[in-house]
Design a protein around this nucleic acid. Sequence first.
RNA 1: CGGGGUGUGGCCCAGUUGGUCUAAGGCGUCUGGUUUGGGACCAGAAGAUCGAGAGUUCAAAUCUCUCCACCCCGACCA
Length: 408
Amino acid sequence: MRQSQLFTRTVKELPKDETSYNAQALIRAGFVDKVAAGIYSYLPLGLKVFNKIVGIIREEMDAIGGQEILMPALIPKENWVTTNRWDNFDALFRLVATDKKEYALGATHEEVVTPLAKKFIFSYRELPLAVYQIQTKFRNEKRAKAGLMRGREFSMKDLYSFHANQIDLDRYYEMVKEAYFKIYTRLGLGDQTYFTYASGGAFSKYSHEFQTITATGEDNVFICDKCRVAVNREIIKEQPFCPVCGLKELREAKAVEVGNIFKLGDKFSAPFDLCYKDQEGIDRSVVMGCYGIGPSRILGTIVEVCHDEKGIIWPENIAPFKVHLLSLKEDEAADKIYQELIKNKIEVLYDDRDLSAGEKFADADLIGCPYRVIISRKTLAADSVELKKRSLATSELIKIDNLISKLQ
RNA sequence: CGGGGUGUGGCCCAGUUGGUCUAAGGCGUCUGGUUUGGGACCAGAAGAUCGAGAGUUCAAAUCUCUCCACCCCGACCA
């Protein structure tokens, strides 16, 4: 992508009214645009990152047998009435159409997936089963805040699993847990993300969260460094202790919830009467689990975790481009290298704009591609380019002929 | 939802004891020129119903009322 053609540009001034780092950086760098409180547009750079996050999540869901579907955002009132949530779900966006029919925008999809499963699950032979979707959720949060961290419209991967019994749910639950760790590791959040014991909310008496440690997090957790697990402060009665080893000396930290997994049991299969026939021909309730990850919140979290005073430092797996190629008044040579990178399928943002070096450096630091390649009179005099990792302070001169192999 | 704060060209903002505001400056944009390894410089230009509505007044960005939006703290958060 030639930067001269890019839809967005960076801005120098911090956006007014945004104090969270992720909102400031993503808006300044042109990744997102705020439409209203908690409602954002994804611009070319931001959408590239978003799609990569979603791609990683999709691969790991497929790997544990999840089958991708897409359910509607517009959900009829009756579905919510069945589970008593039409009146009891505060954050539901309810709406009345001109023909007086009532709907709610999907805040979660148990009310759709359970009746859906009822159409295909009849026998123990069809279990277990897992379907997931990556979709936009709508929740009328009392207070949207912190950029992408808590929006009214946000993206969510929600996986739902269906089992013949609790034992099989427990088995699959562990598989999902492992898959989630793989996801966070691939997203570059592995080191600071903890499996966390939390309250079950309206679904069940307990649940597990994945919490990423960052100062801007909304949650407080107590970490056991020995077991690499955490406990959410919300379930602590008197003194915190590690639920795995019992240790009482735990480290307190701010964290953001980047995933949540629940054992639903028959909370939803019961009201929708989702049953199967077992080997004896007896009707039994399907046992369900649900598992969520918010790609939009993940995007904001990564920016909170991965940045310095100059801008974002994208983990390589999700960077909008692998390489930011800067031409310092040497467009002819830079054009050639740009074509060479494209030919070798290396994602490159090419700063071909007629701007001063300082501006190009500042933009490259702000946008945060993992590798910066500079072509100038100085480097060409040595048949070289300057290669610098965004995460490091040092740079090196390397021969143009060696650039591709160095980047592959 | 309770408390606090803020709304002025595309962006950041000055001005708010009513009067010389015909609204200043910076960024960005456009034109011309000089520059080119860390957000360069000179000259010129375009661009504003001062969040919206109502009111007070000879006179409102400035005062009053109502409403709206956004941010922060708290509560809530399936």
